[in-house]
């Protein structure tokens, strides 16, 4: 209800409402953008571009679903478009079926803070990172990701598996490092 009024005011062109909407979601959305990019500056570029799209197309928000989810989708798409526009990201967006790793039953304990986790996700190779974000964080199925990317769902699954294993290893290392530093103190 609160969001509906905010949206209406934004549609009327009220600057105060636009600012309010931005303040409400900017921090969460920067968190989303951050996971898809390599630098805070790039993340902010995506955030800026994303919010411009949000305001330009706000009238198309049907007010049926969660406003935050709608904005989040726009941010994710903006991030993906941003990646493909930038050559340094493009070169890393390469999908192969070279690696086939089964999903393991590893049991790493996530004891890292969200920021550290996000940083680790960002260290994944770009292709893995995208699939990992889409599946693990955004919740798309491998079939959906396969359709979207024009790759087989098996490729998506294997890439994800690889990314996941890599991430779990890094998390374990980070946790170990953290523990040892605590023990040293």
């Amino acid at each position: 209800m609160e969001h509906q009024k905010l949206v209406k005011d934004c549609l009327k062109g009220k600057s105060q409402a636009q600012r309010e909407l931005y303040e409400l979601f900017a921090q969460t959305m920067l968190g989303v953008c951050y996971r898809y990019t390599r630098s805070v500056r790039d993340a902010e570029d995506v955030l800026q571009e994303g919010f411009i799209k949000v305001f330009h197309h706000l009238k198309q928000y049907k007010q049926e679903g969660e406003l935050g989810a709608w904005i989040r989708r726009i941010m994710v798409n903006t991030a993906l478009n941003y990646l493909k526009r930038n050559r340094r990201y493009q070169e890393e967006m390469f999908f192969t079926e070279e690696y086939l790793h089964p999903v393991t039953d590893d049991d790493p304990v996530i004891r890292l803070q969200a920021k550290e986790l996000a940083d680790l996700i960002r260290q994944l190779p770009q292709g893995y990172q995208v699939i990992f974000n889409l599946h693990a964080v955004e919740g798309f199925t491998h079939v959906e990701i396969g359709e979207m990317l024009g790759i087989s769902d098996g490729t998506s699954r294997s890439q994800y598996s690889r990314a996941r294993n890599l991430l779990i290893t890094w998390i374990e290392n980070s946790v170990e490092k953290k523990n040892s530093s605590y023990a040293g103190k």
């Binding site: 900017a26 969460t28 968190g31 951050y34 996971r35 969200a114 920021k115």
Partner: peptide
């Protein structure tokens, strides 16, 4: 974890 992850722009 990621849902709670926020950064100040």
């Amino acid at each position: 974890e990621m849902d709670e992850f926020k950064l100040r722009p």
